[in-house]
Design a protein around this nucleic acid. Sequence first.
DNA 1: CATGCTTATACTCCTAGTGAGCATTTCTGG
DNA 2: CCAGAAATGCTCACTAGGAGTATAAGCATG
Lengths: 326, 326
Amino acid sequence: MATLHDTETFEGESFPSPLAINHAIAADLIAVLVAVTAGEPRVLTIQDRRALPSGPFELEHRSLQSGLRAWVERQTKHPLGYVEQLYTFADKDRAGTGQRVVSISYLGLTREQPLAPEQEARWLGWYTFFPWEDHRDGPPAMIEAALVPRLEAWAAGALDPGVRQARTQRAAITFGLDGRPWNEELVLQRYELLYEARLIPEALRGAAPEGEGFTVPGRAMILDHRRILATGIARLRAKIKYHPVVFELMPETFTLLQLQRCVEALAGRLVHKQNFRRLIEAQELVEETGETAQDTGGRPAKLFRFRREVLAERAIVGTKLPISRA
Amino acid sequence: MATLHDTETFEGESFPSPLAINHAIAADLIAVLVAVTAGEPRVLTIQDRRALPSGPFELEHRSLQSGLRAWVERQTKHPLGYVEQLYTFADKDRAGTGQRVVSISYLGLTREQPLAPEQEARWLGWYTFFPWEDHRDGPPAMIEAALVPRLEAWAAGALDPGVRQARTQRAAITFGLDGRPWNEELVLQRYELLYEARLIPEALRGAAPEGEGFTVPGRAMILDHRRILATGIARLRAKIKYHPVVFELMPETFTLLQLQRCVEALAGRLVHKQNFRRLIEAQELVEETGETAQDTGGRPAKLFRFRREVLAERAIVGTKLPISRA
DNA sequence: CATGCTTATACTCCTAGTGAGCATTTCTGG
DNA sequence: CCAGAAATGCTCACTAGGAGTATAAGCATG
């Protein structure tokens, strides 16, 4: 049928009926599957650790979400505790082939299970892909050593002084330079900045021959998979602050320090122990099991379990506007 | 080509290559276009106010986002100040035809412009579709009068006492019953609750013949467009709290009260005037133009303009975890 | 078995943000 | 001149959350 996006008029017919089929395209699902093991955030990868698992668009399921869940659980035997749609990518030439592919990406939280050795899938720490994102021991040295000089060169390379200033400012804000605070949620912005500055191997593909140009440490992935992973990390780092999803990554029972280490692993930065406990307990997110963990290396810690009831008891709040409660 | 989602094994080949085309499906874009006119939040509709504008999946553009922007601006002559992807819907039988359609929905902010009279598109206040969402004059009477009794009946209709209790609790939380606070962000949850309770005409289609069953006030839309609209409203209500997008809905210059009325219109609730001003000025989001508006009916108000620089100066923050700044 | 290391747990202090109300100023319309 | 409507300025009280101190309870080791 005729599509109308060339029509310059805007009359009755100009908006096609929502029932009309406009373009047949190809679609698939891409999953960012996250677990936290031994205090490290990890993602499931395939293809020699260079790709995120992607799968068919299943037609049988009630919803995309349930389709994704069933597919992952069948393929990996990892039950998914939490699933959330991330973003739909359909940029031109994503695949580099001229082929238009729509990829609907999802974030899934799980607990790492042993993978059969013949399987191609591997769990890998996500800081392998984003070494500049782990600030648990302070800002990684590679930021000052490798990123800053190249970002400065990139900024200086702009002809227009306004652009130069804007690039410098963007780098300073996203990477927390010049005494600015580090904002762990800007994962995607940082990746995109490095991409624009052509410091990411993925950005050089097609243009320069592989191997040319200075690139920055951090494992590359195929196509735009690293961007999708960055999107997932950013979403998760934001989410843990107002929704109790961390517990989907924890074992059934855990100590408060384990919980804290898990949050820190995801956020890539440390939190104040006493305040963390105060916050968790004030919200009544957990309850004691009555047991203690003896292998802490110090005073035994009480074991806790997530109070699943809170998911029903509460709705997510979080208000920044001066809203009257009257 | 063969899809692998029936395979129960998980070996090398089980994850198809991301380049593989798994299913050819139909895709379109759906836009929630919002403006605030005369203190009322409005959305652009077509098809006798029963549908959101939807359009073709454009292949020429660099990205989905730019494709949507170009399409809307060409069709409606409304420049879009802000565009954000909402959600991708592909649930089975969304269209009711068995046809699988993927709809990528977007939220766009603009300023209402006159529409040519022959155009099918119409701006309509969004509370026409969600009369229970406007709490600017206190909770609408229709909640107590029309919603609560039917939700109670629905809850009581469950055989299992646990389900009864859960339904009652959900209704109480989402609608702020039993002295609970009203949370304006739960737009989608409220709509889905009413949908599940079969109080929404859209939920009765196909099952019961049209006209049967008690439904609740509020204009219906085709397919799942009202759900998409609810998603957009919810997203916008959340967004205005931590990102300065309201200004995309305002004229070039405005008084602080106009700005406040705009926020209140979107949030569906009132804010404390003095605190609102304090917040806006503390964040240095606006600057005085030097002029005053005389037609306020009282003391003339200073006119302000949005300081666009803040978009570059700042990154969005907002932290709820006890994160150390050291 | 005393000592020191490690971790858990309990309090205290301080400050920025913010909800709420009062008071004063400056306009318009009778 | 007076009432009404906003705009604008200021105070107050409370809370969340950042940071530090102090104490308790285990283990390893000489």
